[in-house]
């Protein structure tokens, strides 16, 4: 590995794209305001200067249209990276993702494929209200044919995005909007991170906190607080909801005998439900307490800061849940 170097989450994404575009001329980016504007979050700044407007393509505000163009291009030899500015706009592109991209391999008996990435965002607390704050990754995690990636560090973002672009199947890649400015060590070399491999972000022996994307930092913060009262929390990040590293999650829960699953999607019928059931099933005889779930409050995200902050798990709420589960009051 080369010398340690820090990048922001946004820079890590940009670097992964640039490297893959240099490596493979089939890779292109398509979406709204991706070229000169570099997206509203400035994640793609500089790419159009290097790769030109033929490979960094601004579209009209037509999510189903350019998603569908992505699917067709992927089926005929290209490797599109489709940019859906906000995860909330998945709703508009859903037919193309779910009924077209996800199913083409199976429906064609394996003759056609859609090797493409849908990059989009998740996460609340930006005061963006109900139509720009949702975390809808559970929707696509539900669909056979799709793979779903939720990086939580700049390092993971770069390695996982490269894997996503090289994969022969459609991938939905969720970036936490609040994380774009977060810094972390990112090697300058070409590395990939395989899908379906969880990462222990912090080892501990008293309780397992499974956390995804935006909730990983929250879990790490809670773990620090737990340390102070003598509870050692293990924070484990599945990194992909499908494929899901069931073995690692079960292993961790077996070791600690207690588990909480924290994810920013809605709690009901959410990612937390799936993971909790995997743990409850796989670690049943080892558990000292029921597996707890913490997701977003089941309400449309409110605008008012006074309300919005109540909808997402916090370090404090995860800490309290863990403390209760460990029988410390």
């Amino acid at each position: 590995m080369s010398e340690e170097r820090e990048l922001t989450f946004a820079e890590a994404i940009r670097e992964a794209l640039a490297e893959e575009m240099r490596r493979d001329s089939r890779v292109f980016i398509i979406g709204e305001d991706v070229a000169e504007a570099g997206t509203p979050f400035k994640v793609l700044s500089g790419l159009v200067e290097e790769f030109g407007k033929d490979r960094v393509i601004d579209t009209p505000i037509s999510e189903p249209g350019f998603s569908g163009i992505g699917v067709g291009a992927a089926m005929t030899g290209m490797r599109p990276v489709v940019d859906l500015m906000f995860g909330d706009f998945l709703t508009l592109a859903m037919d193309q993702i779910v009924n077209q991209a996800a199913k083409v391999s199976y429906m064609s008996g394996g003759k056609l494929h859609a090797p493409m990435v849908f990059r989009t965002t998740l996460g609340a607390t930006r005061r963006s209200a109900a139509q720009h704050s949702q975390s809808l990754h559970a929707w696509v995690s539900h669909i056979p044919g799709l793979q779903v990636v939720l990086p939580s560090t700049p390092y993971d973002a770069k390695g996982l995005l490269k894997t996503a672009i090289r994969d022969d199947n459609p991938v939905v890649f969720f970036e936490d909007k609040m994380m774009y400015k977060m810094k972390g060590v990112v090697p300058a070399d070409d590395y990939t991170i395989p899908f379906g491999v969880a990462d222990i972000k912090r080892a501990g022996s008293d309780i397992t906190i499974v956390a995804t994307s935006s909730m990983v930092q929250v879990a790490l913060g809670a773990a620090k607080m737990l340390d102070e009262i003598g509870i050692g929390a293990e924070v484990i990040d599945p990194r992909t909801t499908f494929p899901l590293d069931k073995a690692a999650l079960i292993e961790s829960a077996k070791k600690t005998a207690r588990a909480i699953v924290v994810d920013e999607g809605y709690e009901r019928y959410g990612v937390t439900a799936e993971i909790a059931s995997v743990i409850a099933d796989g670690a049943f005889y080892y558990l000292d307490a029921p597996v707890k779930r913490m997701g977003a409050l089941d309400v449309p995200i409110p605008f008012s800061p006074a309300l919005e902050d109540l909808t997402v798990p916090t370090e404090q709420s995860v800490f309290e849940m863990a403390r209760r589960l460990c029988g410390k009051t």
Binding site: R127, A129, F303, S304, P305
Partner: peptide, 15 residues
């Protein structure tokens, strides 16, 4: 984002 707003603070500028 105040209670007295048209949407009781739940909507904000865009809603």
């Amino acid at each position: 984002g105040k209670e007295a707003g048209y949407c009781r603070g739940k909507g904000g500028s865009m809603h």
